[in-house]
């Protein structure tokens, strides 16, 4: 082993201190001035590479990019008006319920209390899920439009 030089890959790994040498490789390195010199040369090279000046843009990248980014006036959290329809729908529903209360009473009079409660709960849950899904789809579509056609927003 002492006659064979260490591979270039091993020398590079040694220079970056990311390899554990075998005992025979270590013995070779101690006795071989050429391999030792190459490790030193690579160590110097790596140090110099680290110190190379970092490239930078010779123009104002921030200004260049930001002029193309649309300024969205409304934040997602500011869309309070999405709840406005609820203010109309809820009183309308209540009024309808009041007006047709006798018919509704007739319709559900035959049902036992537990079944009625279950029915109402299930209906309310379904309505809430439907509304949630509607709002989520709307937001997703809006986001897609913003992503694909930023100038449109």
């Amino acid at each position: 082993m002492n006659q064979l030089h260490l591979s270039d890959q091993t020398l590079q790994l040694l220079a970056s201190q990311s390899v554990q040498l075998l005992p025979e490789e270590e013995a070779h390195l101690k006795s071989c001035a050429q391999c030792a010199a190459q490790v030193t040369a690579y160590t110097t090279l790596f140090g110099e590479l680290k110190l190379l000046p970092e490239p930078h843009f010779s123009f104002d990248v921030e200004a260049l990019v930001m002029e193309k980014i649309p300024v969205v006036k409304e934040h997602r959290t500011d869309k309070w008006w999405l709840w406005l329809p609820l203010l109309v729908i809820a009183p309308a529903g209540a009024t309808m319920g009041y007006v047709f209360r006798s018919q509704l009473n007739e319709l559900f009079s035959g049902l036992p209390g537990l079944e009625m409660a279950l029915g109402i709960t299930a209906s309310v849950c379904l309505l809430m899920l439907g509304a949630y899904d509607l709002v989520r789809n709307y937001n997703q579509r809006l986001k897609n439009i913003e992503n694909n056609f930023p100038s449109a927003t």
Partner: peptide, 21 residues
């Protein structure tokens, strides 16, 4: 994603060196 373009400006500032590299 909520429409705050200033937040994107910060992203540009944070990543400019890496992108230039």
């Amino acid at each position: 994603l909520g429409g705050d373009s200033q937040a994107f400006r910060l992203v540009v500032q944070r990543t400019e060196r890496l992108v230039a590299q």
